[in-house]
């Protein structure tokens, strides 16, 4: 239904706003059309600065803005909700910004960590989920876990206070729990170890205590780390820790 000419005009205006490339055939007032790009980037830059205050400070003056301009020119943001737009930045950097990645190899992790704070602050409310009734040793009590959390696996310790030089020089595997507190609804981070992650995921999968300890023990043997006693100890510690974090409750 749209004529080719109308379609092209709309595409050229939208493309100009994203790329700053003004097609001579775009039939607009050339002295005013730049306001559209300026207004678009007022929104985009404001949103990015709000979302990524730590990442932004890594960059010398002007470079962050240039990065966001390149991102918006090259990456098609498909979500109609503008507040969800910043989450695409990490994906873009991983695939489209090799030079930035050399300078700041931890940047995708840092962006994810910053994004997750907002995501979990705003995520839809979830109901407490029941855990396998055999989990709680001798007592037959009903246990629930609070699903408003996520375990992040990071390649750099970007949650540590030491800062960019430390992050860059300590690549590895890091596990970070991000969760929304059931009462205060605030978002918190907590560093966890790999074995704790294994136990926690097993609890949520509905395995009973005996199975989890057995599997954990196998894992420890496989990794030449420990014995059965330590597996039980790890399980109990995870159980206590998550109770303290209010991500577990027993009724």
């Amino acid at each position: 239904m749209l004529k080719e000419k109308t379609l092209r005009q709309q595409q050229k205006l939208a493309s100009f706003c994203r790329t700053n490339i003004l097609d001579d055939d775009l039939l607009v007032r050339k002295d005013r059309v730049h306001h559209y790009r300026r207004l678009v980037f007022n929104i985009i830059l404001d949103m990015m600065e709000t979302m990524y205050p730590i990442s932004m400070k890594l960059f010398p003056e002007g470079e962050w803005e240039q990065l966001i301009h390149r991102f918006f020119a090259n990456y098609k943001c498909t979500d109609p909700q503008v507040w969800k737009m910043p989450r695409f930045l990490s994906d873009y950097i991983k695939t489209g910004e090799k030079e930035i990645l050399v300078r700041y190899p931890f940047l995708p992790d840092l962006l994810v960590m910053e994004w997750k704070e907002l995501e979990w602050f705003t995520n839809e409310d979830l109901e407490w989920a029941e855990i396998n009734s055999d989990i709680s040793s001798s007592e037959k009590r009903i246990c629930f876990y609070f699903p408003e959390h996520e375990l992040l696996i990071l390649d750099y310790p970007v949650y540590r206070k030491e800062g960019p030089d430390f992050w860059k020089s300590n690549p590895g595997k890091y596990f970070l729990l991000v969760y929304r507190h059931p009462e205060s609804r605030k978002v918190f981070y907590q560093e966890v170890d790999a074995l704790s992650c294994f136990v926690w995921e097993s609890i949520k999968e509905g395995k009973n205590k005996a199975v989890i300890i057995s599997e954990l023990n196998d894992l420890l043997i496989q990794q030449k780390l420990n014995n059965r006693f330590k597996a039980e100890f790890i399980f109990e510690k995870v159980w206590d820790d998550f109770l303290k974090l209010r991500l577990l409750k027993i009724q």
Partner: peptide, 23 residues
């Protein structure tokens, strides 16, 4: 506010044309 599968997050003017009306 969307074109070529990319959101602009701002309001762009539509060409005032009869085919745009029909669209």
């Amino acid at each position: 506010s969307q074109c070529d599968n990319a959101h602009l997050y701002d309001l762009l003017p539509i060409p005032f044309t009869e085919d745009a009306v029909r669209h």
